[in-house]
Design a protein around this nucleic acid. Sequence first.
DNA 1: GCGAGTCACTTATACGTATAAATTCTGTAT
DNA 2: ATACAGAATTTATACGTATAAGTGACTCGC
Lengths: 350, 350
Amino acid sequence: MRETAGMATDTGDPAPSGRPATSVDVARLAGVSQATVSYVLNDAPGVTISEATRARVRAAAEELGYAPDASARTLRTGRSDIVLMPLPATPMGALVLSLLNELVERLREHRLTLALYGDARSRGVAAARDWMRWRPAAVLVETDRLTAASVRRLHDGGCATVIGFGPAPSPLVPTMVIDDGAIGACAAGHLLGRGRRDLAAIVPAEPGLDAYGARRLAGVTAAAERAGAVARRVDLPFDEDAAAWLAADWATGTGRPDGVFAYNDEYAMLLVRALQDAGLDVPRDVAVVGADDLPLGRFLRPRLSTVRVAGDVTAAGLAGRLARMVAERDRDPAVTVSLTRVEMVPRESS
Amino acid sequence: MRETAGMATDTGDPAPSGRPATSVDVARLAGVSQATVSYVLNDAPGVTISEATRARVRAAAEELGYAPDASARTLRTGRSDIVLMPLPATPMGALVLSLLNELVERLREHRLTLALYGDARSRGVAAARDWMRWRPAAVLVETDRLTAASVRRLHDGGCATVIGFGPAPSPLVPTMVIDDGAIGACAAGHLLGRGRRDLAAIVPAEPGLDAYGARRLAGVTAAAERAGAVARRVDLPFDEDAAAWLAADWATGTGRPDGVFAYNDEYAMLLVRALQDAGLDVPRDVAVVGADDLPLGRFLRPRLSTVRVAGDVTAAGLAGRLARMVAERDRDPAVTVSLTRVEMVPRESS
DNA sequence: GCGAGTCACTTATACGTATAAATTCTGTAT
DNA sequence: ATACAGAATTTATACGTATAAGTGACTCGC
């Protein structure tokens, strides 16, 4: 294909010589040695290069469109600019996903590249070995895939920082704590504050989500016990029929709770609709609280009360913090950053 | 930190010798040359190695926990296993985002790694240079950041496949077409089929989204014109007050449309709620159609009609296709894969 | 019993970079 | 004049891998 008519012409370099220019090409054009090129372009401390030569080298590099080969540099220095993120076993939630965009941006400011690594869900030393193939500058991974030996291996191999994600701080590495219990506790506190005494917490029946649900339930239970109230577990698939069945039971039976934490906004909406269809009033008969503060919750009737994970900690803040930890090679396992600074958003459903 | 009490002990390799084992280490342990190790572990065709030696090498590799250094291999072969995805300028939508998980998985099956690359939104040759630093096996990028020269440079540099994302096929590279117009046309076709003649299409006022909105509007307009009906553009920020204002105008004024395509389900829900609060009936007075088929739409009253982007083309299907194109070094610019095989999901709101 | 041909390896080299060590050049104090 | 100290640069090397080219040892057809 030639130049397509009308297509934006793109003034490339003067020598489209096939493969990318190397530092040797630059050296030849500038009339210096390859070492000099490296010294100049890396602003190497402790070496003195005349300003005239520096200018010549930079001009040559510009002219050839030189960009250093990442693998050669990695091979030589023993560490890459890659931040490896082995793909979490559970599909990434909205919280983590919203981080990605921001994280990539922040990492870029530190010349770091985020690589999503799809591995076989391996753990421990075997996983560490695999990750080390890339000589990453840092690894971001769920804490439960790390072991003492694997962390040692990563550090020994030159990986500056290992950061864990998980429900609780790890003794091995700095941890980003996603404390689902706090979310449940927040919702329960709100419901209890409004006089509800017989609580329930929905636990999704979906495979990936049940673990999170159980932790949120634990938060609800703990808060209820502290207040001398009770909380029960209700397993519910994301399915309209199942919700209708549950609602019918609550409408007729005697064991209806007066306050429900519905795991998240989506389950909350499912439940609210089912309760209403069964003739129950929300919040009079049953108060319902969701989580995640989906924009949609505001437009429901009743408007949905929800637990919000505070925004300033997420995205920008966390990404910046992560980037800084990597840049500064922070590996203090005592560091714990909570991603779940939660906040109640009371509306009409509770 | 020693072994933490009660922590899962992780039987590492017998020689935690500091830095990762190399093929030379394996060779030494197996009593062969480094070349033999490489031949064995790569199942090199055309070389004959006795089964006994193969076994010894494999055992040694296993014992040392050998994993080949990615950068050394890249440097030697001239191409890496990386699929580079320069981060789109517009925050990734649900469609693209949902792809990521699946894509990473499929790429793994072909031994490819997805790297999200945060660059300075550069375009053309300058961008291509930067991307080539990684010697990627493939580049996934928005078509409007590519030029003829940049594509040539990528190919010359050894990048097997360049795949574009965009609203229309590119003459330069295989393209994944995200045809927002088709989404709008689908919604409009449905509304027209139900007898609506005075259509409107919401265009989000949010900066990143307005471009998509405009394309969806174009689809609506085209379909309306074909049917001898009319369609107008309505700019709306995602804001309750703005929606209320619009609804009030439609409730009292004379210029109310009888069918609205609301850009997506979220805007649709915002709008429906505002219309109802203004005393209008959905769908009697105004029919509303969203898009994306959010699970929540089913639980609204009225249940929300929506345009679904067919599932089989997305995620698994696309990811598999992408992976195959990369593996087979497909670079035929005539290839076009539409990500937007749309389908109407009629419910109660239209 | 002897070149030819396979088998089973080893030796040697290049990829592109960063950096330690060696070299040349230029003043400058002795 | 001579040594000496930077300054300015070059030469040489290593990182870990893949692979082309080379080397014996063995078999085989005649």
